[in-house]
């Protein structure tokens, strides 16, 4: 991330950059993903240039405009700008229809993350990181924008659990944001059974997830990847708009508080909690193929 990049600067820069893409490419269709500011600016630019915008991972909602911030706003404003919506499940289809989008403009495809994980794990032999071999492994990624104030508090919960379970190893790929780095260093860097590291290359991160006993995260993406691999997830958020793992009982919302996190991690490691590793999610027809087919049909 650029140093102290404000949302206003980012959005303005994106709109100007994207204008060049429209000028140079004269595209017949534009495709964007999810709820980032990039996707919002892309949808808006597509509308300004009157080029059909196809939205992948559409229809996620918390219905609280400020949470997650600014992603929920992005989602709600992308929807009326999109020509076609690719919803991961029937839940997102329903959200979109509730927002007045006609069903003929929506396809339910599943999540493309499953295609990515499946593909990468087939193509790249699993290399195990060295830390904590033969020990229960807890993978921890915490960094969300709206959680910044409470991040240290959450990390104190991780710390307390790590102190109590010195037989387990905690691996934390730490987001490059300076405030996130500072918080992890302050709270966790002195513990022998905690490894703080740079964000890992993706296949290595998936390998790490594969051999973990428990995943502690505030990332919806990691939630999806971990549950696809059949791993129990403690989701340190107030709510989640992603369905992956909820029905299977793999995902537990634990909030951001120190004590909640500590107790949930200890319970998760004891295996006495409701969460248990289950076989990885059933892999159904590739979402990306369905999306490509629909786009080809729409532009021809």
């Amino acid at each position: 991330m650029r140093p102290s990049q404000s949302l206003s600067e980012l959005t303005a820069r994106l709109l100007l950059q994207l204008q060049n893409v429209f000028k140079i490419e004269r595209p017949a269709a534009i495709i964007g993903h999810g709820d980032t500011t990039t996707c919002f600016a892309t949808a808006l630019s597509s509308f300004y240039h009157q080029v059909p915008f196809f939205h992948v991972e559409a229809g996620l909602r918390t219905y609280r405009l400020n949470s997650p911030f600014p992603e929920e706003f992005n989602r709600q404003t992308i929807a009326p700008l999109a020509f076609h919506h690719f919803a991961p499940t029937a839940v997102e289809l329903e959200n979109l229809m509730r927002g007045g989008i006609p069903s003929r403009h929506i396809s339910v495809t599943g999540s493309t993350v499953h295609d990515s994980v499946d593909y990468i794990l087939k193509k790249h032999p699993v290399e195990m990181p060295d830390q904590g071999r033969n020990k229960p492994l807890v993978v921890t990624t915490l960094h969300r924008r709206e959680a910044a104030d409470s991040l240290k508090n959450s990390l104190r919960g991780v710390r307390a659990a790590a102190l109590e379970r010195s037989d387990a190893h905690f691996v934390c790929p730490v987001h490059p944001g300076p405030s996130v780095q500072a918080a992890f260093n302050e709270v966790l860097s002195d513990l022998d059974n905690v490894t703080l590291m740079e964000p890992m290359e993706y296949p290595l991160f998936l390998s790490l997830l594969m051999r973990s006993s428990l995943v502690v995260t505030d990332s919806g993406g990691v939630q999806e990847e971990a549950t696809f691999l059949g791993k129990p997830v403690l989701l340190a958020r107030q709510e989640t708009e992603r369905r992956d793992g909820l029905e299977s009982g793999l995902v537990r919302l634990v909030g951001l508080g120190k004590d909640d996190l500590q107790q949930s991690i200890l319970a998760g490691l004891r295996g006495t909690d409701v969460i248990h590793p289950t076989p990885a999610t059933k892999y159904t027809p590739p979402a990306s193929e369905m999306i490509a087919e629909e786009i080809e049909r729409a532009i021809s």
């Binding site: 994106l14 994207l18 893409v21 490419e25 004269r26 595209p27 017949a28 269709a29 534009i30 495709i31 964007g32 993903h33 999810g34 980032t36 500011t37 990039t38 996707c39 892309t42 992948v56 991972e57 999540s111 493309t112 993350v113 295609d115 990515s116 593909y119 964000p199 993706y202 993406g221 590739p286 979402a287 990306s288 193929e289 999306i291 490509a292 087919e293 786009i295 080809e296 532009i299």
Partner: peptide
């Protein structure tokens, strides 16, 4: 005319890569 996929973050890159490959095939 071209079809343009626009991404900006790592999660978008990861999740759109298979869409890019599938579209390119077609």
């Amino acid at each position: 005319k071209s079809i343009v996929i626009i991404i900006g973050t790592r999660p978008e890159a990861i999740k759109m890569a298979p869409v890019y490959l599938a579209l390119k095939k077609r």
